[in-house]
Measured scan of single mutants.
Amino acid sequence: DAPDEFRDPLMDTLMTDPVRLPSGTIMDRSIILRHLLNSPTDPFNRQTLTESMLEPVPELKEQIQAWMR
């Protein structure tokens, strides 16, 4: 099983494109984008959230890719 820090906190699946929300939570980009289609909010604190506020986490993405090899 993947380490917890590699798993999306909402869907508990392996992240492939991790992004940091303004709240500091790291999620998979595809999952948070799907959530934003229904509700333009951070799913953990209900603060306003837009796609432009998502910050890529390239170092975590590299760690996940290395773990998958």
Rank of each mutant, 00 (worst) to 15 (best):
residue 29 R to L: 10
residue 17 D to Q: 05
residue 46 R to C: 15
residue 40 P to I: 07
residue 7 R to S: 04
residue 36 L to V: 05
residue 67 W to F: 09
residue 27 M to H: 04
residue 9 P to M: 07
residue 35 H to Q: 06
residue 68 M to P: 04
residue 28 D to T: 02
residue 32 I to A: 05
residue 60 L to H: 01
residue 63 Q to R: 15
residue 18 P to W: 05
residue 18 P to K: 02
residue 8 D to Y: 03
residue 44 F to D: 02
residue 31 I to Y: 07
residue 42 D to C: 07
residue 60 L to W: 03
residue 66 A to Y: 10
residue 69 R to P: 07
residue 56 P to F: 08
residue 27 M to S: 02
residue 6 F to H: 03
residue 53 M to T: 04
residue 68 M to H: 15
residue 34 R to F: 11
residue 61 K to G: 06
residue 62 E to N: 11
residue 7 R to P: 02
residue 50 T to F: 12
residue 35 H to R: 06
residue 1 D to M: 14
residue 6 F to A: 02
residue 66 A to N: 13
residue 22 P to V: 05
residue 51 E to Q: 10
residue 3 P to W: 05
residue 10 L to N: 03
residue 53 M to L: 08
residue 24 G to I: 02
residue 53 M to C: 06
residue 57 V to L: 13
residue 10 L to E: 04
residue 14 L to Y: 06
residue 2 A to G: 07
residue 68 M to A: 10
residue 49 L to V: 07
residue 41 T to W: 15
residue 51 E to M: 12
residue 52 S to K: 11
residue 6 F to K: 02
residue 48 T to L: 15
residue 37 L to T: 11
residue 33 L to P: 00
residue 61 K to L: 13
residue 11 M to V: 09
residue 14 L to G: 00
residue 64 I to W: 02
residue 59 E to Q: 11
residue 62 E to V: 11
residue 49 L to I: 08
residue 39 S to V: 08
residue 39 S to I: 07
residue 67 W to K: 03
residue 9 P to F: 06
residue 21 L to T: 04
residue 30 S to N: 11
residue 44 F to E: 01
residue 23 S to G: 09
residue 41 T to G: 05
residue 34 R to D: 08
residue 50 T to H: 13
residue 52 S to I: 09
residue 23 S to R: 03
residue 65 Q to F: 14
residue 3 P to M: 05
residue 52 S to D: 15
residue 48 T to S: 13
residue 53 M to N: 07
residue 10 L to F: 09
residue 28 D to L: 05
residue 9 P to I: 07
residue 64 I to H: 00
residue 13 T to Q: 08
residue 67 W to M: 05
residue 56 P to I: 06
residue 19 V to Y: 06
residue 36 L to N: 00
residue 20 R to S: 05
residue 43 P to R: 02
residue 18 P to T: 01
residue 2 A to Q: 06
residue 31 I to R: 02
residue 57 V to E: 08
residue 32 I to C: 06
residue 47 Q to F: 08
residue 47 Q to M: 13
residue 26 I to S: 00
residue 55 E to W: 08
residue 61 K to M: 09
residue 44 F to A: 02
residue 17 D to A: 15
residue 60 L to P: 00
residue 24 G to F: 04
residue 63 Q to P: 00
residue 16 T to N: 10
residue 68 M to R: 08
residue 56 P to C: 08
residue 5 E to P: 09
residue 3 P to D: 03
residue 29 R to A: 05
residue 32 I to R: 00
residue 28 D to S: 04
residue 50 T to W: 10
residue 2 A to I: 15
residue 56 P to Y: 08
residue 56 P to K: 06
residue 49 L to K: 00
residue 35 H to T: 03
residue 32 I to H: 00
residue 22 P to D: 01
residue 64 I to Q: 01
residue 65 Q to H: 13
residue 51 E to T: 09
residue 57 V to T: 05
residue 10 L to C: 12
residue 16 T to M: 14
residue 45 N to F: 07
residue 55 E to M: 12
residue 19 V to W: 06
residue 13 T to V: 12
residue 62 E to F: 11
residue 15 M to C: 06
residue 9 P to T: 04
residue 21 L to S: 01
residue 27 M to E: 02
residue 26 I to E: 01
residue 49 L to G: 00
residue 47 Q to R: 11
residue 59 E to P: 05
residue 35 H to I: 09
